[in-house]
Design a protein around this nucleic acid. Structure first.
Lengths: 379, 379
DNA sequence: GGAATTGGTTTATCAATCGAAATAAGACAC
DNA sequence: GTGTCTTATTTCGATTGATAAACCAATTCC
């Protein structure tokens, strides 16, 4: 449908925002002639449109942008229960959403999801463009061709043909991806970090997930399990290192995940609720402080290691808002700063974000958007 | 000189070894027609030549290989004192070598190096092809355009225009690179790991260096300092964490580098020589055992973290042969296995290599070879 | 001695891209 | 106002990269 030239132009406009034909030629290292013909074609197809004029010295430049009704993309997050289904436009704006219980049985889950997909498409109506595809973000491992869920402990699935079944039920192309990877791809496509060729994303939920963009591309690793921060051996030589579900002891996940924090609170006889715990700590409760301190410190060290190893231009950390403001957040930064070898005064930016559930779904939608905008050559 | 098509063919033949035109077409996803024309051209230029026939079912295929006299490449290693200068052919074979003291003063250093370059070129004589360029491997940070040494603690250099000066003295194009990066690029181009899109390399010398190939390309990171394993906070909460030259305490380098091991030996009243220490440990000396155990264990944990984060298909570890066979090597593997989360039974291969000084120089030569073979689009 | 099989070349053709010239649309000086 | 300057965009051949399909070549297999 689109050629490589088309894809490059769409890619630049999506990631870097509206720009003129001449800007595009500069950015993509193409001749103005080529850009002109491609753009004419894309405008003719209703994918691009001319925006406002920008006045400078000579002739004003015509900014170009994606038509928001050029296409729409379904994003499904199975990251947590309940699952989320959204319909997004080419800018990553959510046009409609559904929240539904995450069924354990694959087939029933797919049926429920297919119904939700139909619902969001109907709700968005003609405003939205043709639906181009479905992206699915799910915890666990995904096959190399991104069609099959190889293993997901959280879902209890093994070798489930997610793409095949969902595609059969909806008639749309389906692309699946690990939840952390979907999140960072969404950030790259729709978020403000799109132009960074090297950045990392970490989220603290029940578990801890992470993903990395290296040289502008997602780093999947040889076994498809790159960037696993959660089983970093952080507290391995402490006397109270806890066993982890991975079989080792002292993994980051056993200290800094929400589950770990809640568990530690329970064991200390405190309420196992993050917000309450944060309030207690703010009021000076020593046990609450100790728990959050330990969790934040461990995560800070792990982030320092991440920065040392990957040297990203920035790290996006998605965090429960309550944690963000507590000792956790403060100690985290301190410990990270302590353990990062400062080179030439440059400090890697740590960007704290509140973790919203829908972010996973828009990340998932970005998978479908990627295929629409960039073709299949975006590994 | 060469076009993108040429470069792709040369790249495949260098990295993957000799193959037929049809193999090339398959590998590069090109039509047989295109391959044919490119190959004809390259043979005409004396870069490629037809090797033996391989007989199968139908018509036998003509294997193609690089002419070893197509070009030659100078490699300079400033990794340690003395410096090494080699002349290598397109297969990475060393045609001539010189070892010379590493001068502290940049200008005198360059003059000595230029003389050595002339010497190796003369020694190799007409057997070797036209010298295509010079690669320099040096400890420390290198500018983004790979021409200037921004800072090197080991050399005591700050903002030295290595490429400019050496180029002026020799009349050849010069490409510089961090020592670890040069090493892994050499491994990728000339070594047996060329076809792995994701692998890591770590070397234990006076310091500890590491580099990573991700998605088939060198991972430099945003500040050009990616993959720094040596300042991983490994022993940070031990009571005897040593201060590191980076300003922190308990870095991997303070425990597992050769310097650290020698230091620990001296403090324990043992001979500060790695080989002797290894022998002592083999004979059951408890202090020697403890030092090597601690060093190996720390490196093992760091490698486990590396594997968790990068998920490479293999890790190449370059080590002093004496260490390889000692407790160090054994504990290293154990600790690494303990801390790597095994997924689906696949184990990341750890390849131990004896570290030879010349390897850095051939790695440096590969920088020039890359530019000759693949053009400048190989960031 | 054919038939089958695989490797490599020729030819006509398509599509991407470029450079340079032409055209458009403003700002700016006077 | 008017002409000049600057920058944006389009038009127009020309070039290059790559292809498919047909063809020729060199073997093995039966």
């Amino acid at each position: 449908m689109f050629s490589a030239g088309h894809h490059r132009i769409l890619s630049a406009l999506t990631r870097l925002g509206p720009m003129s034909r001449t800007d595009l030629a500069r950015h993509l290292d193409l001749s103005k002639a080529s850009v002109s013909t491609f753009v004419r074609d894309l405008i003719g197809r209703g994918v691009l449109r001319e925006l406002e004029l920008v006045f400078g010295q000579g002739r004003p430049s015509v900014m170009l942008g994606l038509c928001s009704d050029a296409a729409s993309f379904v994003g499904i997050s199975l990251h947590a229960d309940p699952a989320t289904v959204v319909l997004a436009d080419p800018h990553g704006r959510v046009l409609a959403r559904r929240v539904l219980p995450r069924e354990a049985d694959p087939e029933r889950c797919f049926e429920a999801l297919a119904a939700a997909v139909a619902a969001v498409r109907q709700e968005a109506g003609v405003e939205a463009g043709e639906t181009a595809g479905i992206g699915v973000a799910q915890p666990g491992f995904v096959s190399r061709d991104r069609r099959i869920c190889l293993a997901s402990a959280a879902l209890g699935w093994v070798d489930v043909d997610v793409a095949g079944r969902l595609s059969a039920l909806t008639g749309l192309p389906v692309f699946i991806e690990n939840d952390a990877n979907a999140l960072i791809l969404g950030e790259q496509l729709f978020g403000p970090s799109g132009d960074c060729p090297d950045f990392s994303l970490v989220f603290v939920g029940d578990g801890i997930g992470s993903a990395h963009i290296v040289n502008g591309r997602l780093h999947r690793g040889h076994h498809g399990g790159a960037g696993e921060l959660s089983h970093s051996p952080i507290a391995f030589d402490s006397q109270n290192a806890l066993p982890c579900r991975c079989g080792n002891r002292g993994c980051l996940e056993t200290v800094s995940s929400l589950q770990a924090i809640r568990g530690a609170a329970r064991r200390a006889g405190l309420p196992a609720d993050i917000a309450t715990l944060a309030t207690l700590a703010a009021d000076g409760n020593p046990e609450a402080l100790a728990i959050l301190h330990r969790a934040g410190s461990a995560l800070g060290i792990a982030l320092a290691q991440l920065v040392q190893m990957f040297d990203p231009s920035q790290v996006v950390l998605m965090l429960d808002p309550a944690l963000k403001e507590s000792v956790f957040g403060i100690v985290l930064r301190q410990e990270m700063d302590n353990h990062v070898l400062r080179r030439s005064g440059v400090k890697t930016a740590l960007i704290l974000r509140g973790s919203e559930h829908e972010t996973f779904a828009t990340g998932a939608a970005s998978l479908a958007a990627q295929h629409y905008l960039f073709g299949s050559n975006c590994t």
